[in-house]
Amino acid sequence: MAERMTTRQLTVRFGNAEAVRRVDMEIPPRSVTAIIGPSGCGKTTFLRALNRMHDFTPVARVEGSVRLGDREIYGNGMNPVELRTRVGMVFQRPNPFPTMSIRQNVTYAPKRHGLARGPELEELVERVLRQAALWDEVKDRLDHSATSLSGGQQQRLCIARALAVEPQVLLMDEPASALDPTATQKIEDLIYDLKQEYTIVIVTHNMQQAGRVSDHTAFFYMGHLIEYGATDDLFTNPRNERTEAYITGRFG
């Protein structure tokens, strides 16, 4: 299931401003890759380039290459709609669909894609909600509005919703930044479980979080990928002085 993602000379421009500059990065499957860096360093922009969310920003230009496995995602053969079913995304703030019930939030995408119906769909709902560690909390109220959940539950619902299309890669944009410590803990546990099956890329500006959940860490600064390596190495033995300055809290 899980796939490797590779970027080559990836550059993202908004008008004249370069937000991501010539980034070469290889994201290994079945692991968690954290992207850290100060605000405005291009980490979210980079993440959104991985599932072509910049398609909807008229001023955004993406150059270079991004591969999912061995397929070029900015190539002619790749339909962005299909791409986004393979590369799912969880956003900074929980954004369940308020007009839909908990169940409908989960089944929305599988129904569109024709992945399952009837009893299969019910199984899918239970499976992904279990995967997202939410099943026990919501199994009795699947038809309640998604907005009746707490913030942390909503975010786990959003993760379940993303998992329901069986993606190969899961992108997470500061998924716990709007949550309290207990809910953050649950999301982090969940990320740890999910990496058995998925390629996970998580943007965070919480270095402790990066240290706790990730196998690899990339440090971005001014749109450049400054340093990338195994998390333990990067935090204990940074090779670049800016990385060191950042992780020791001297700037950012």
Partner: peptide, 10 residues
């Protein structure tokens, strides 16, 4: 790695 698992019905 392969990309044979076509999630989406073409």
């Amino acid at each position: 790695m392969s990309t044979e698992t076509f999630v989406v019905n073409p």
